[in-house]
């Protein structure tokens, strides 16, 4: 199959997928197509979405492809959906999540060591929201649970993978500038 033929097929499938759909899964659906062509078609499609002034965007999220509305039109979308933005995470939860994202897998006592405050509630909230998940236990006294970020975390923050987060050292510079 030629790239030009693959493009609309891929677009159609990505459109109906309820979650970001990976290149592997798309390739499996199209055994008649060359794997490299699928990859190329996806890239072309993504660029087309970027270039044309459309209300939709095709993004790489959590290792897959997803079609969504562009953020600049949220006001109009909300007008139609009649929805309010959902409750935001508290600063305590975000701090805890940032530590987990950068230091995973990490235990609750280690998180508390960095934050200097009890963080059990923040961890519980993050677990409930499925932004983090247990990743086994640390082989030390008490065998505390190790936590890491989930796929839901990537989706929630619009990341393709963890490497998209800036290096922690970059924050240091930012921090010392402001103080």
């Amino acid at each position: 199959m030629r790239i030009e033929d693959l493009k609309p097929i891929l677009e159609a499938v990505i459109f109906v997928a309820s979650e970001p759909i990976s290149e592997e899964e798309l390739a499996r659906l199209l055994p008649e197509a060359d794997r490299a062509h699928v990859a190329a078609a996806l890239e072309v499609l993504r660029r087309e979405y970027e270039a044309e002034g459309r209300g939709l965007e095709l993004r790489r999220i959590a290792g897959g492809y997803r079609i969504s509305t562009r953020p600049e039109y949220h006001e109009y979308v909300r007008r139609y959906l009649k929805t309010q933005p959902s409750a935001r995470l508290s600063m305590a939860a975000l701090e805890t999540l940032a530590i987990i994202a950068y230091k995973q897998p990490i235990t609750l006592p280690e998180i508390q060591e960095i934050r200097g405050v009890n963080s059990a509630r923040a961890v519980k909230t993050l677990l409930e929201k499925r932004l983090i998940e247990p990743k086994g236990r640390k082989p030390v006294v008490g065998r505390p649970i190790l936590y890491g970020t989930s796929r839901e975390f990537l989706i929630h923050f619009g990341l393709n993978d963890l490497s998209e987060l800036p290096a922690l050292e970059d924050f240091q510079e930012l921090g010392s500038e402001s103080s």
Partner: peptide, 9 residues
């Protein structure tokens, strides 16, 4: 401070 900045991001 680094994690606080990361949280803001």
């Amino acid at each position: 401070q680094k994690y606080k900045a990361a949280a803001e991001l």
